[in-house]
Simulated assay, not measured.
Amino acid sequence: MNIGAPVNLKACKPRACSPDLLGRVNLLDMDALSAFMPMHMVVAMDGRILRAGPTLRKLRPEGGLIGGMFFDLFEMRRPRGVTDIEALPAQDGGRVSIVFRDGVRTHFKALAAKLSCGRGILVNLSFGISVVDAVEAYDLSSRDFAATDLAVEMLYLFEAKSAAMSESKKLNQRLQGAKVAAEEQAFTDTLTGLKNRRALGHVLDRLEATGVPFGLMQVDLDYFKQVNDRFGHAAGDEVLQVVARVLVSETRECDTVARVGGDEFVLVFQRLVDTELLQTIARRIISRLEEPVPYEGNACRISCSIGIATSESHPGVGSETLLEEADKALYASKHAGRGRCMLARPEAGSVPDG
């Protein structure tokens, strides 16, 4: 069969058509056939595939389609049991359901019609509702379908949906990022970058609810008002930022450092209730904060007083009570001369560091 020559397609004669018109539409050249049916096959009566449309060839770029045997390449799903190519047009009005035997097992709907020349059949394939999966599997585009194929409309809808989903995902990511940023801002002291009182409350509530033991330090700066009065609030801000850096460097990542007032800080040490170790850390903090903070050629001098309490030394009390106990120890430290730490013990009051 000369596959470059026009194919004579069998057609039913409508009552309203003239013989001349029927003669013109009864012959359809191969270029037009490929344009209208880019997934067609011309199959010889012995089952050999003589011709395939451009989209169908694209599904098997490695070859083997032209010249291959129809029943070797395709598995019949409907009608079942058919092994004779000539029987396809006669079964169920020529409606056929087939699937590739190997590779991507794409499912096809097809319509088979016998050619008027009697030398073969024309099989026109369609992806049906699996068109979206096929487009992704074979990297197809709208150019691979006939312009009148409803699959093109499905592709436009799929592309529109994909674009909408992509934009929705991006919007959700931006909203989530904005939510995280807003929550972070709501729990952060803007000057120092430390946690604020609200964040501290959440941390203590979580520790109390889970029963995790923890140590507390109430830290209050000494002589901070003199810095503000002498050098201005900008100098005070610089001092607070230096204090924040010192406190963070003296704690672990799992610990919490919060600024809860102008020059008041609270440190929460998860699973650290060793009072000797806590006092050692407190003394180190005091020593570091007594180092002058330079600001515009001036030396800003401060110190700090610290009160310490632990959940282990105050069993059964809530975090608010524990904060109050640490606060009492803090003011006992101030009254004792500042620049020192004291340990709160309910049975003996506030105990100074050795």
Rank of each mutant, 00 (worst) to 15 (best):
T148I: 02
A146N: 15
D274Q: 02
H40R: 07
G68F: 10
R77T: 10
E290Q: 15
H233I: 06
K13N: 12
L175N: 11
S319E: 03
G47R: 04
R284Y: 09
S116E: 14
P89R: 00
A112P: 10
V268I: 06
K169F: 13
K328L: 12
A186V: 05
P38Y: 03
T106W: 05
D220Y: 01
T192A: 09
I3E: 15
V203D: 14
A11Y: 12
M41D: 00
Y138F: 15
K169C: 08
R338H: 01
R283P: 01
Q241W: 04
P14G: 06
G201K: 12
V242N: 13
G297K: 14
T251G: 02
H335N: 13
D139Q: 15
V43G: 01
G215P: 10
L73E: 11
G193R: 05
R143A: 13
M30G: 03
E253H: 09
I129E: 15
M1Y: 14
A137F: 05
R51K: 10
K114V: 03
F187G: 02
S350R: 05
A182D: 08
E253D: 13
V243N: 05
A32M: 15
F71I: 09
K161P: 00
G307C: 08
G236K: 07
I121R: 03
R283T: 05
M39N: 04
G64A: 04
D20C: 02
D255Y: 01
V273L: 03
D84I: 00
F269K: 01
I286W: 04
V260N: 07
S166K: 14
F100Q: 03
R57G: 03
C117E: 14
K328E: 11
V180C: 08
S303Y: 06
E264M: 05
A151I: 00
Y331Q: 02
S142L: 04
Y331W: 06
R48D: 02
F70L: 12
M39W: 06
S97W: 11
R301L: 15
I85R: 01
A112F: 08
A235E: 06
M69F: 12
Q226Y: 11
A160N: 08
P294K: 03
T148D: 07
G215L: 08
K10E: 13
V99I: 14
A113K: 13
A164N: 09
A209Q: 11
V212S: 14
R57L: 14
R259V: 01
V268F: 04
S34W: 03
S313G: 12
G339N: 08
L200T: 02
G349M: 05
D29R: 03
